[in-house]
Amino acid sequence: MTKKDEWQGKVAIVTGGSSGIGQATASALADLGANVLITGRNADNLSDVAALSDNIETLQMDSANAKSGEQIVDAAMSRWGRIDLVVNNSGAGQPAPIDAYDADIIANTSAVNITAPSVLVKAARAALSEQSGSIVNIGTAVSRNAAPMLSHYGATKAALEHLTQSWAIELAEEGIRVNAIAPGPVKTGALTGMMGLSEEMAEQIEAQETAQVPLGRRGGTADIVPWILRLGSPENEWMTGQILTIDGGWSLRA
């Protein structure tokens, strides 16, 4: 079986699929013949990604919405009648020192990074079980070490890794595999997008992080997406509960 045959006609959900790792994952899956539902908050960005392939459908959705899981699954099932892969890629996090902590921002970060994947897994469980499907959660290598200024982002992504392993045990009897990827510094636009930094500040942080990577460069989506496909593939049917750090060695020195 070729890799294209492996994904032909399968159905994947990719949250946060309108940019960065999510967009690249959706495009790769669509190119391999999968039908992909992507979610995101920006309608224009979603439309731009959908224009890349007839296999990509969109759903404008804020992952912080408590009903997001049900609505995403309903959209995929009504369109294709099955779900083979869920990629929990949406993320939230804003840099802040302790004196600037804001309860609403912390709550939103928790809602996107912890609650949203949880309600989506709950909603998709039955459909995934029918296909012996897979879940791939996107964490962060930031959680490997202390994260001043990014403490809630790192903490909530660490919580997602714990959920990954807990779900792996709970869902194993249904043939559903659950794994996670923890990317290091990847050029995705997240610093100016999700984290709301200025272009100047983002450039400074990118240069600092690049200097810290033992392999000498920031990552790209091409460094991450193949591993998402591998973890999501039924070829790896005996791999579950694992968190794979892909960061050029960055977390070893941070």
Rank of each mutant, 00 (worst) to 15 (best):
R217I: 11
T58P: 05
R41P: 06
E200A: 15
K3M: 14
L160K: 05
S251I: 06
E209Y: 15
N179T: 00
T164D: 03
K187N: 14
V121R: 01
D48N: 09
G9V: 07
Q60W: 07
D247N: 10
A158V: 13
I205T: 07
P183A: 02
N113S: 10
I205P: 07
R82F: 08
V14Q: 01
A100Q: 15
P234E: 10
G193I: 08
D247V: 05
D5Q: 13
A76W: 05
M239K: 01
W167H: 11
I181P: 00
A100V: 09
P95F: 06
E199R: 10
R144W: 05
A168I: 08
E130Y: 09
N113A: 00
E206I: 10
N55R: 11
A96G: 11
A30R: 00
T156E: 04
T221A: 07
R177Y: 07
A75M: 08
P185V: 06
R82N: 13
M149K: 11
T210V: 10
P214V: 10
P95I: 08
V112R: 00
S18L: 01
S90Y: 01
V225F: 01
G139W: 01
E57A: 15
P214G: 08
D31R: 13
K157A: 07
G216H: 07
T15F: 04
V49D: 01
D31W: 02
Q212F: 05
L37T: 09
K157I: 12
L163S: 10
I98N: 08
A202H: 13
A28I: 07
A75S: 15
A12Q: 02
T109Q: 11
G249Y: 03
A202F: 10
L128R: 02
S19C: 06
S134H: 12
G9K: 02
M61F: 07
D44C: 02
L171M: 12
P183I: 02
E6A: 06
L163V: 11
G22F: 01
A127F: 04
A159P: 12
G193H: 04
P214Y: 04
I98S: 12
A76C: 12
V36C: 04
G241D: 01
